[in-house]
Structures are given as structure tokens and as C-alpha cells.
Design a binder for these strands. Structure first.
Length: 167
DNA sequence: ACGATGATGAAC
DNA sequence: TTCATCATCGTA
């Protein structure tokens, strides 16, 4: 199992290394285990594409919690987005899980895995029913691209290659 | 390729 | 109270 320490660092590095690992969801007595194939990294105040860009607010407060905290938010009136918080408490950062094997799209995978606001603010682990397991396989072929849906952040931040996709 | 969708938090 | 949003689906 990948523990919270893994996330206590730069989200860009952690997002890239998270590819290939297994996202595990236990719900209604059933355990689903899916390989992570797409992630995006989000930073703090400096990152104009991040929810933390305007500082701490009630909505984004999980991003300011300890590494390994789950940050789930609702957007476009219909989709839940799953993030894992990075860096130490008070220093915001997060990884958006955008795709798993057989289920591409951040809103689709949360729907499939029954992830919603009930998980917001909890921590990854057996307790919350959401955790990550290592993949002994390494040396994946990884593609870097700009992040999706953040044109408003301006060219500098919108063009940063903070999205990672398993080939 | 494009428009409709439509809850929530945050800004005004 | 108004606005923008870290998408997705259906229709072309």
C-alpha cells in the first residue's frame, strides 16, 4: 500500500510516479482495483490553474491539509472530481486522478467508483475505503501534456506540462 | 465539432 | 445575487 508519505512532496513529481499504481475502492463489501493511467498536478497560490490560487477558502480547505488527504469537489453541476492532497499541512497541492484503466475521465471514474463528497476531507486508507497500492512493474512509458480545462489560468500556467498519461 | 447541462463556492 | 467552473453526453 502506498501511504501518505508518498504524497508529502512536490505534486508534479508525485503525479508522475502515481501512474501505474492501483486505485483501490472498497464499497458495499466489494473491492475494485484499477490501474491509474492519467493524472494532473496542481500547486498552491502560485499556480493559477489551482483551486488554491486564491488562498484558503471553506471549499478548498482540504488542499491545505496533510498529505494523503482526499479532496473531492463538485463541478459543472454534475461531476465529482477526485484529488489526493500533496505536501505538508498548510502548503497546498494536489493530484487530480483523471483516468484509470477502462474508465477515462475524472467525472466518469468517480461515478463508477462511488466517490462523492462523503470522502472529502478524509484520508486515503482502509478506513475511508479508498487507497492506493503499488505496482511492482516500473519503467512505464509516460507522456507529459498541458492540463485540461484551465485556459483561464493564462498561457504560462495553462501550458505547463503537468498532466501525465500512461502510454 | 458544438451546445446543453446545472450545483456549488466565491466574488461582486 | 451573479458568475465561473480541474466535464460529459447527445446530436451532427
Amino acid at each position: 500500500m502506498i501511504n501518505a508519505d508518498f504524497f508529502e512532496r512536490n505534486p508534479v513529481l508525485a503525479a508522475r510516479e502515481l501512474l501505474g499504481a492501483y486505485l483501490v475502492r472498497k464499497i458495499d463489501g466489494k473491492t475494485v482495483r484499477l490501474k491509474i493511467v492519467e493524472t494532473e498536478a496542481y500547486g498552491g497560490r502560485e499556480d493559477l490553474g489551482s483551486h488554491a490560487r486564491r488562498g484558503q477558502t471553506p471549499g478548498n480547505s482540504p488542499m491545505f491539509e496533510r498529505a494523503g488527504t482526499i479532496y473531492v469537489y463538485f463541478t459543472y453541476g454534475m461531476h465529482w472530481m477526485l484529488n489526493i492532497v500533496c505536501r505538508e499541512k498548510g502548503n497546498p497541492g494536489a493530484i487530480l486522478i483523471r483516468g484509470v484503466e477502462g474508465c477515462i475521465g475524472p467525472g466518469r471514474l468517480t461515478k463508477k467508483l462511488g466517490i462523492d463528497k462523503r470522502l472529502n476531507g478524509l484520508r486515503i486508507g482502509k478506513r475511508s475505503g479508498l487507497w492506493i497500492e503499488e505496482n511492482p512493474e516500473k519503467n512505464f512509458k509516460i507522456k507529459k501534456t498541458p492540463r485540461i480545462g484551465i485556459a483561464y489560468a493564462g498561457p504560462i500556467w495553462a501550458n505547463k506540462k503537468h498532466r501525465f498519461v500512461l502510454e
